[in-house]
Design a protein around this nucleic acid. Structure first.
Lengths: 245, 245
DNA sequence: TATCTACATTTTACATGTAGATTTGCAAGC
DNA sequence: GCTTGCAAATCTACATGTAAAATGTAGATA
């Protein structure tokens, strides 16, 4: 029997924060559950996503599970190999670096746009997020830092008033989170990150598009450097996707 | 009965460059057929993608059709509304402009990377594509121009040696093509485009990353300008437009 | 021991069944 | 004419059935 980790999360949680009203679909809940399981590490990279096993475990039929698994594949959190099923995405150092490299120009530009034409209260909202982040940093709360970090970047992506850029950044977010899970935290990384976030907000408040882009790219470059340095020497996880993909 | 256009296209199109050999899946062929139908205009924006009707028309069961339709949704060529099915994506002027805006920094950066670290024969390959494009331009062959244009941009996206950027640009390509279908051709647009392409290639051959990025962004900005000018005042479809720009 | 083959098991990919929601057609009412 | 109010038809979302492929495993062979 395949090794499906606990997954005790009941699907019948009935939390429906959907934009449209109506009963939550089983597919959506399954996607959310699987995404959560992957990003939390309950389902590890390389692990097989067996449709029958997951259906059995979740107490639902195979149809919504299959759809959910395919949706995760489209999200980049899983990869498909023909006639051999779907496995959780494995990101090697090369992929991780590529993700960070891709993020730079895209999110840098998004930050410029947010500064130039974002909503008037953007600065305040970002301040609120950073206030929460400051608490997390002071408490050494790694999980809280990640949460507020994601909120910070999402807020900027949403504020750039370009649905396409927003969409692209969302499609990077999952793989980014997957990549970040694989790196060890460096001492002081939270403090540095918060400081860099503050510079971005300062430029946005000044409506300085160019400065905001520069600050964000500096932040992302620093993040990339912190990540690269942790998986740098003689990494365990070889690329792996060269043969399967 | 829903109005499904002809779709006489045989499912054996086999333009799917799959990494693994083996018998083509019905799903893959269906995705290809639907994508083709959407991009060629056989299935028009706003048209409903009825799973039973398509299954009947294609002579297959509903399962692979449903999967294919969901795949197109993930690609951005169709949109889903809860319990009300999937329709072909409608792109208004705002969305079209957003797509072009998003493309700038991303593909500009990809061009820089391609110039700095692309394969040695990249210049020659691009020359070959542009030679073909020159023929199309000389012949006034709009379809040939679009084909070589797509090949040109794809070649650069592939040459940047960053799978993530490549992936993001591919996910833009479909929506880009959909957007371009909606604009009328301006006189001289092919000639201008070819000339701009040549400048990009010149910079790439010189391994001038900064110049290549600048040239590509200039080309994309010009394209955007040509597109925007064709749909400028107020086009019919303004779905989901939230605010002024 | 290592390799090959035959068989059993599992899984994918596609086909089909169906309850309930949604849309449509159509006639009555204003 | 235009709405309103069903009833029929249709479709979505999920459940289940199944052939063929893939995988695992035991026994045979070298």
């Amino acid at each position: 029997m395949p090794d499906i980790t606990d997954m005790t999360t009941q699907l019948r949680t009935t939390d429906d924060p959907l934009p449209s009203i109506g009963p939550a679909r089983v597919v959506d809940e399954t996607v959310a559950a699987l995404r959560q399981a992957i990003l939390s590490g309950d389902l590890r990279p390389g692990q097989k996503l067996s449709v029958p096993a997951l259906a059995l475990r979740l107490g639902i039929s195979r149809s919504p599970v299959r759809e959910a698994v395919l949706a995760l594949t489209a999200e980049g959190l899983a990869v498909e190999s023909r006639r051999r099923g779907v496995v959780v995405t494995e990101l090697g150092p090369k992929e991780t670096d590529a993700i960070h490299e891709a993020r730079g120009p895209l999110e840098g530009f998004a930050t410029r746009l947010a500064a130039e034409r974002g909503p008037v209260d953007l600065g305040e909202r970002l301040d609120a997020i950073l206030a929460e982040q400051a608490e997390a940093v002071a408490a050494g709360d790694e999980d809280g830092y990640f949460r507020t970090n994601a909120a910070f970047h999402r807020a900027i992506a949403a504020a750039c008033d370009n649905a396409e850029i927003h969409r692209l950044l969302l499609s990077l977010e999952g793989r980014m989170a997957l990549a970040l899970r694989q790196v060890a935290a460096r001492p002081g990384h939270r403090e540095s990150g918060l400081e860099e976030h503050r510079k971005v907000v300062a430029a946005i408040k000044a409506r300085d598009g160019s400065g905001a882009e520069t600050a964000m790219r500096a932040h992302l470059a620093a993040t990339r450097q912190r990540v690269v340095s942790t998986l740098h020497p003689d990494d365990r996880m070889t690329v792996g996707s060269t043969s399967a993909m």
